[in-house]
Amino acid sequence: MNMKLWLGTCLMFLSTIVQAQTKSTIYPGAIWQDNEGNHIQAHGGGIIKLGKDYYWYGEQRAKGLDTGYRYVSCYKSRDLVNWEFKGNALQLSDPENLGNRWVLERPKVFYNKKTKTYVMYFHLDDARYRFARVGVATSKKPEGPFEYAHSFRPLGKESRDIGQFIDDDGTPYLIFESRPTKGFFIASLTADYLNVDKKVCLVQAPLEGGAIVNYNGLYYAIGSALTGWRPNPNKYATAKSLSGPWSAFKDIAPPEANTYGSQSTMMVKVVGSKKTTVLFLADQWKPAQQWDSRYLWMPLEIGNGKLRLPKPSPFSLNVKTGETQLLH
C-alpha cells in the first residue's frame, strides 16, 4: 500500500475512534463518566472558565479513600460535556483539630489574575456542624496541589453551605448561608481573595445552596430550603443589583417535584455566538452511598424576571454557539 494512503487511512481510523469516544449529550441523573471511564466525583462543586477551558472542582467521594483525609477533585473540559480527570487538587488532613468525621464541603475556586493564584474556598466544619467556618487553600496551578492557608467566619458570621459568583466584570463574590441570621449573605472578596471584604447583601430567606447569575442585566438567585440531604422545592428571586432589594422567592419547578430530587449548586452562563444559555447545576445526593450521587444539569428557561427549570431530559450543548437541544 502506498505510504501516504496508509497514513491517511490510519488518521481516518483514529479520528473515527476519537469521535466515537467524544460525547455530545448530557444525561441528567445518569452516571457521568470522565475520560478514564470512571463516574465523575465532583459533588457540591464549582466551575470556572479559564480561557477556553472549564475546570470543575468538587467533593471527591469515591470508594476506598483514606478516611483520615478529605479530597477535592479537579476535572477539565472544553465543552462542558467531556471531562478529563486532572487528579485530586486538594488532599487535606484535619486542619483545625476538628475530630472524627470532620467536614469539607462545597469547594469553589477563584483565580486571582493580579497574584496569579488559584484560591479555593470550602465549608469547613466538625461532625456536629458547630465550627461553621470557611476554609481557604491556594495553588499556582489550576489542578493543584492546593495548600491549606487558614479558616475564618466571614463577616464574623457562622458559615455553612457556600457558593461562588463571578460577575460579568470579573468581580468575585462569596455566598454563604448563616443559620442564626436565617438568610444567606453575599460578600465581596479582598484584593488577594484570601478573605471577604464587606457585606454586599443579606438575603433574608432561610435558604442554602445559594447560586447567582447575571442575565441581561438582572440578577437571579436560587436557593434550597434547609432540609439536610432531603430534596425540596428550590426557589428563585431577582434583583437589579446584588445589594437588592430582592423580589419574593418563587418555585423554579412544580413544588411536588422537589426540584426533581436535586439541590442547587450553581448556575453557569454559556455565552455563545448565537445564544446565551444558563445551565442549572445541582446534586442528586445519596447520603448512604455518596460515591453514587448524581448530577442534574439542565438549561434554564430564563428572562424578563422569570426562571423555570424544565423536567430533566437529555440535551446536547454547543458551547461555541451557546445553543442547546432537548433530546426527548
Rank of each mutant, 00 (worst) to 15 (best):
D197A: 03
T227D: 09
P206D: 15
S188D: 13
Q204P: 00
T227W: 05
A239S: 14
V213W: 00
F184E: 06
P255S: 03
Y219H: 06
E208C: 05
G228Y: 07
K198M: 03
A239L: 08
L226T: 10
N234Q: 13
A211G: 06
G223I: 05
G244E: 12
K250R: 15
A191M: 06
Q204S: 13
L226G: 00
N216M: 06
N232V: 08
S224Y: 03
K235F: 00
C201L: 04
N214W: 05
V196D: 06
G217D: 11
K250E: 14
L242H: 13
L242S: 13
Y220A: 06
L242A: 14
G244Q: 10
F185Q: 13
K198V: 02
L202W: 06
G223C: 04
Y220H: 08
F185A: 09
T238S: 06
L226H: 07
D251V: 00
I252F: 01
S188I: 12
V196T: 15
L218A: 02
W246C: 10
L194W: 12
V203S: 02
P233D: 07
Y219W: 10
S243Y: 05
S247Y: 05
F184A: 08
S241Y: 12
D192Q: 04
I222D: 00
D192R: 08
Q204W: 01
T190E: 11
S241N: 14
V196C: 10
D251R: 00
A239T: 10
I222P: 00
P245Y: 14
F185N: 11
I212W: 07
D197K: 12
Y193N: 09
P254Q: 01
P231T: 13
P255T: 01
T190F: 09
A211T: 06
K250F: 07
K235P: 00
G217C: 08
K199Q: 14
Y219S: 07
